[in-house]
Design a protein around this nucleic acid. Sequence first.
DNA 1: AGGAATTTGAACTCATCGGTTCAACGTAAC
DNA 2: GTTACGTTGAACCGATGAGTTCAAATTCCT
Lengths: 205, 205
Amino acid sequence: MTTRGRIDKRQAILEGAFTVFAREGYAQACVQDIARESGVAKPTVYNHMTDKATLFRNALEAAAQTALAGRVAALEPLAASQDDLRATLEEVAHALLRLHTDSRSCALKRLLYSEINHFPDILEIVKESGPDRLNQALADRLARLALAGRLRAADPDLAAEQFLALLLGPLEARSRLGTRTLEDAELRTMAAAAVDTFLRAWAAP
Amino acid sequence: MTTRGRIDKRQAILEGAFTVFAREGYAQACVQDIARESGVAKPTVYNHMTDKATLFRNALEAAAQTALAGRVAALEPLAASQDDLRATLEEVAHALLRLHTDSRSCALKRLLYSEINHFPDILEIVKESGPDRLNQALADRLARLALAGRLRAADPDLAAEQFLALLLGPLEARSRLGTRTLEDAELRTMAAAAVDTFLRAWAAP
DNA sequence: AGGAATTTGAACTCATCGGTTCAACGTAAC
DNA sequence: GTTACGTTGAACCGATGAGTTCAAATTCCT
């Protein structure tokens, strides 16, 4: 395994940094550990990133990008107009739950919460590519379904917000803030419960 | 200059500690600042608390206790069987939203998320007196309403979980993780939307 | 009033860590 | 080969902060 140029190291550093930050928190994570985790020397880290702070920002931004991509992709089944709406919603809900219980996702959320005071700017960066985008994408799908007469037509943005709330709200307590791994069966039950209530409130009359 | 030797410095220390921890995070908060914030000398802090870690635990536990008390008290209007169920639910929902947007509450949540890895035991302490208790208390109220024929009888625990999810889920994005203060009017709108959807799904058929 | 307990300020120890420097070491391009 | 550049390990500097010590000051209890 030989070093193949700068791009590899940079990527390794960003991933290693996120891993260590996620495990230790910003202040407790020391650059030496990040270097070791990335399989790189400490001066190399400072060769790519000017600061520990910018290292943190870049690592979080990269993690947020990949997280968002997966979540939006999980909405895909809603694109094709399905005949069994409930089954499709449950499938999407289950996929979203799985993505939100991923350890990297939980770590990202934790880091956001913990360092939002010291890095107010990461809120802009991540929020831009965060839940807002997911909400938007879901609202688009729901609007199409409303147009097709499957859902109530009123306010697809609100419908999306409440769908995600019903789905992800219980997750926090159930997963014990991300420290407990949930069985797949439990995820399915949660998805079904959320979809059931959502449809009772939002199905076309 | 300051009153020396006052009784019950312990309380002042716990409150000051929470304030500083909330502002700085665990690692960045230095005991000197906590002492200053509490109007107390540094050795006095160590006279009451053996460690920075136990100081943190105790401060969080105290904050969680008071937060829970307020929230359960906010459910009070549901006790007396009201004739206008929607109005009562909206009142309770609005009160809960106000409590959850309180800066101390947001700080508590942030601290929980950020230090859950370094202090796994605070999850037990706080969760015991946290959302679980609130959910339980609300489920009790909803069960009485179901018995009175106002709500669907099926699973009051799930109903409570979903009511809180509908109400508090959107809060995270709207308040920008607790960094934005929401207008009272917006809180009322959110409460009304949550209650509306909840009743559409859970009102007695 | 008087003794016990607590508080206080300041200085001190010791460890950690961000960030830098530097000489030696690949490695890739020409 | 040689030139240029990124990488490496190690050592170093300066700052910060946890936790302690201690004598003096203050408060509490009786």
